[in-house]
Amino acid sequence: MPSNQQIIEEALERIDAGYVFPAKIPAIEAAIGDHLAAGAYEGLDGPALCEAVTAHLQEVCPDKHLRLLWTDEPQSSAPADADGGRAAFLALLRAEGQGIRRVERLEGNVGLIELRRVATAAEGASAIGAAMQLVAHSSALVLDLRACLGGSPEGAAMWCSYFFPDDQVHLNDIHDRRTDTTRQFWTTAHLPAPRYLDRPVHVLTSGTTFSAGEDIAYTLQANGRAVVLGETTRGGAHPTTRYTVTDHIQVTVPTARAINTVTGTNWEGVGVVPDVPVPADQALEEALRTASRQIPSQPG
């Protein structure tokens, strides 16, 4: 079993090799090194060590994805598992209906989709399409992201594609430090369900909404395609790779950053700020009130 010092040193090596903002690495190493020299991590068990190191990382570099994580289940470091957790993530999505918790038609012909995770575009396309097909003829849509914990940037782009008329909308870019490349994300040309156009879209957020869930809210808001209601989100915008340090400890390293084409920046550290601030548990009720005012009354 490696010592706490060895665990921290390996975590710092991973951060040094991949963190998306290399200019911040000397400050990170100096701060953690000072705490290490002061004995701050001596005698800590695994969970306490992860909590302490993460807190110190956040103090010097408030990046919500930069963390040391404890997992109760042992994590294999075998080459077969060296996929950044992708296989486990895909299995989780399959078990959870590709992240779609519920689809409903509410009073007033308002569609509701509750999303807990953002599936990959490749595996999630049919499920996303099925959800959008069910709300295709609604008069307004509520996309509930209040408990969305994140997922795939490709999947976020696919969800957003339904709210734009064609494949000509440049949504955002992701710059990867390791490869020094920038990938563009555009709306998708071909979708398995009708696009949702010319009708109100309301996105619900909370302090739990994170990562790819924030991506959807931020992108639709920045493009003027949705009204965001609820609470400011957690503020994690950097795609991240997990590295196994011990059987139970992983370091998560943001290796890329998102750049929105409208704002030129992202939601890292600040979250998605709602257009209509309201406690998260009241956001759906407020969205339905707003929708009822926007939907043209039907002839009696």
Results as ranks from 00 to 15, higher is better:
149 L>N: 10
112 L>I: 01
234 R>G: 09
107 E>R: 06
154 E>T: 09
275 D>E: 14
126 S>H: 13
152 S>N: 00
139 S>M: 11
245 V>L: 11
255 T>I: 14
16 D>I: 05
100 I>S: 09
67 R>P: 01
50 C>W: 12
172 N>F: 15
90 L>S: 08
277 P>K: 02
269 G>F: 07
66 L>A: 07
36 L>R: 10
61 C>W: 08
164 F>V: 15
138 S>N: 12
43 G>M: 02
262 V>H: 00
185 F>A: 04
79 P>T: 02
3 S>I: 10
77 S>E: 03
158 M>E: 08
174 I>V: 02
15 I>K: 00
142 V>G: 08
218 Y>Q: 07
163 F>P: 10
117 R>F: 14
8 I>Y: 06
89 F>Q: 08
283 A>G: 06
115 L>V: 14
114 E>C: 10
49 L>V: 09
163 F>R: 04
248 H>M: 11
132 M>E: 00
228 V>M: 08
123 E>C: 05
127 A>K: 13
143 L>F: 06
109 N>Y: 03
25 I>W: 06
197 L>M: 12
248 H>E: 13
241 T>A: 15
124 G>L: 03
234 R>E: 15
171 L>M: 11
186 W>H: 14
214 E>C: 01
43 G>V: 09
212 A>C: 13
153 P>M: 00
62 P>R: 15
183 R>S: 00
300 G>I: 00
41 Y>A: 12
174 I>P: 00
86 R>V: 13
1 M>A: 15
164 F>C: 04
108 G>F: 01
128 I>L: 15
148 C>I: 09
257 R>Q: 08
18 G>H: 07
282 Q>T: 04
40 A>I: 14
83 D>C: 05
269 G>M: 03
171 L>A: 06
299 P>S: 08
44 L>Q: 01
58 Q>I: 03
11 A>E: 02
19 Y>I: 02
32 I>A: 08
280 A>I: 03
217 A>M: 05
1 M>R: 11
252 T>K: 12
15 I>M: 09
252 T>C: 14
292 S>D: 07
10 E>L: 15
40 A>R: 14
85 G>T: 13
3 S>W: 11
22 P>Q: 02
115 L>R: 09
210 F>M: 04
166 D>M: 11
101 R>I: 15
249 I>M: 05
104 E>P: 03
73 E>G: 04
64 K>G: 10
251 V>Q: 14
5 Q>R: 15
295 I>A: 05
36 L>E: 12
